[in-house]
Design a protein around this nucleic acid. Structure first.
Lengths: 355, 355
DNA sequence: CGGTAGCGAGAAACCGCTTTCTATCAAGTC
DNA sequence: GACTTGATAGAAAGCGGTTTCTCGCTACCG
């Protein structure tokens, strides 16, 4: 029935509104009205238009509509690093929520590069109705600047109290404190922090909180280890952890924690018997690894869907919704355990990794 | 300098080409030519136009350009399940390759639903220059049908030999055979396969290959266990694995393998001492878990970047590039080991999970 | 029964950009 | 010096929709 004309090379030639109008012997305006469900068209006329549209296989061009309407039904998310499951989850939460309201999602990756992030945001922002900036690596000033040039924005994992920009944050300070307290309660006094990407605001917040926790407790000693945000970074940091003599490790995030555990394992160290390791985020994997990972759980999917709510509100000119700060939930699993009686292989003379 | 006009509410009013034309006292055509680097504009005029454009903070509207040019500089990828790191990697490979050539990426998730997949593809296809269908869950007929209505497409993890559709496939049969042979060489005679989503063509291919392998070797016995594609599915299948009496398990993919390992662990079974488990895909995690996972490695990132190459070729009307079938590489890690002398807890009388 | 309110549908303007077509002018040719 | 040629740049026609404006018509009202 709906035999739609097709050029021989297989590229389906698109039917335009004019052709439908002509075939149905009405004006383009009328076709448009019918397609958009405007009620001011006589029912039988509307039916006729719908019929011809169907028989021609017509569907309005999203691009043309975007131009005419001034909106694209598309939103974008910009993340520093797509390989982190954490971002994938917020991406997914955002995408699903947006899709439920007929919006498409553009995703762009800044590769941890602030300059690229800003360029990308502006470029992509022009194709979209709004953009979500996840864990922006920009400085506060640059970020404020960017937000000004941007159209509807919502911030995830970041905020800008000066400006009235919707933002969803996580109380990293509290989360990391919970982890530290947990480790200390288990008897660990020598703690190490595997620091994340240097441009990460969240990393600075975690570090600050950890320092405070350590300062308040004279018996605990905190070592900061430059690390990064990837598996490999965590893996490579294993040696440094060992050297530090720490028995309790807080990693920048779950990925780094897994990398560290794997690295420690290769060095012949057992987790959690000799060293306890905690992550951050609670990515889906964390439950299913051996040992399952102790971590501070962040509602990643909800971060995404709430970002959509915020964006949607500003797109609709609804009253801005209040910002939310999520309090991570301490999830104790098996990667942390009581500190060993004698602090594992002494920092200086450690054994070689097993063959 | 570039003081761009801004309405009080913060929404930056967009400068149009007409305003630039007016300010520079030239026609819109000239501005357009300058912005697109057409050489047929006198150098000093071009300079003047560029200067006014810059001072007004002008940038061409991507939407308007898309309409005028008939291309959007955007491609889409449709995946059944974004939570699978496998897809995330091809997504990333595609996105990076596309970005390198100034194209943006729309991602859409079909939630393993064939009907939704088709709808999504058509809808999204109209906003894009091309779409990548990853692991389509459509039947061959429906897929062929869809491809016809679609414009430039490339298939990943799927092919349609009848039609001339660029496609990137993985030799699942060979990969899974390698795994089976590996397990058999380790002395395992009772094998189990944890089957994936029923709509997955790849799953059928793996199963078929496994059956052949088993049929050719009278001593080996293959049990097929309905499972799925997620952590939870694998986790839930642990009991069934135990009941089957199998000592060697091939999982639909790495995720399922991890789920199964975790489930087995909770049932008090040690991997690989009592049961060996192999995955498929070699997601980044696989290297870093404890034990690291034996798996068939698929070049996921390359699948994505090659998909872009193919798409780019058809967008440029270049001669179609040949299709590629990737041969998975067997990666033996620690989750598989020689079969236990006495087949672990006997199938009937098994012990309860530990408290 | 004239005036007007209201509805339905077409004409035309517009969204912002690209590109063909055309006009102008200077340089080159015989 | 008339004619062709080539280079520039403007006018205008799209791209495929939406929406305002307008007009004809019916119905209602006093």
């Amino acid at each position: 029935m709906a035999a739609e004309p097709e050029s021989p090379n297989g590229a389906a030639r698109r039917v335009t509104i004019s052709e439908v109008a002509q075939a149905a012997r009405v004006s383009r305006a009328t076709v448009s009205r019918v397609m958009n469900g405007r009620s001011s068209v006589a029912p039988e006329l509307a039916a006729r238009v719908r019929a011809t549209a169907a028989s021609l296989g017509y569907a309005p061009s999203p691009v043309a509509r975007s131009l005419a309407l001034g909106r694209t039904s598309t939103v974008a998310i910009i993340v520093p690093d797509l390989s982190n499951p954490m971002f994938q989850l917020v991406l997914r939460g955002l995408g699903q929520a947006a899709a439920a309201q007929g919006h498409r999602l553009i995703v762009a990756e800044s590769n941890e590069d602030p300059r690229e992030e800003a360029l990308l945001a502006v470029e992509v922002g022009r194709r979209c109705d709004g953009v979500v900036l996840a864990s922006s690596r920009l400085t506060d000033d640059d970020l404020a600047d960017l937000v000004h040039r941007l159209g509807p924005v919502v911030l995830v994992n970041r905020d800008l109290p000066e400006l009235e920009v919707p933002s969803l944050t996580v109380d990293y300070a509290a989360g990391v404190r919970d982890l530290a307290v947990h480790l200390i309660a288990l008897g660990h006094t020598r703690l190490a922090y595997l620091a994340g990407p240097s441009a990460s605001a969240a990393d600075r917040e975690r570090l600050r909180s950890l320092r405070v926790a350590a300062r308040d407790r004279p018996s605990v000693e905190l070592t900061e280890i430059r690390c990064g945000g990837t598996f490999g970074d965590g893996h490579a940091a294993a040696r440094a952890v060992l050297d530090s003599g720490a028995t309790g490790v807080v990693a920048f995030n779950d990925i780094v924690a897994f990398g560290a555990i794997s690295g420690l394992h290769e060095l012949g160290v057992r987790v959690p018997e000799q060293i306890s390791v905690a992550g951050f985020d609670d990515i889906p994997f964390a439950r299913y690894t051996t040992p399952p990972l102790t971590t501070a759980s962040v509602p990643q999917h909800e971060l995404g869907s709430q970002a959509w709510q915020r964006l949607w509100a500003v797109l609709q000119n609804l009253p801005p919704q209040h910002n939310i700060t999520f309090r991570p939930r301490l999830v104790v699993r098996k990667s942390t355990a009581p500190a060993p009686a004698t602090p594992h292989p002494p920092p200086r003379r450690r054994r070689r990794p097993p063959a």
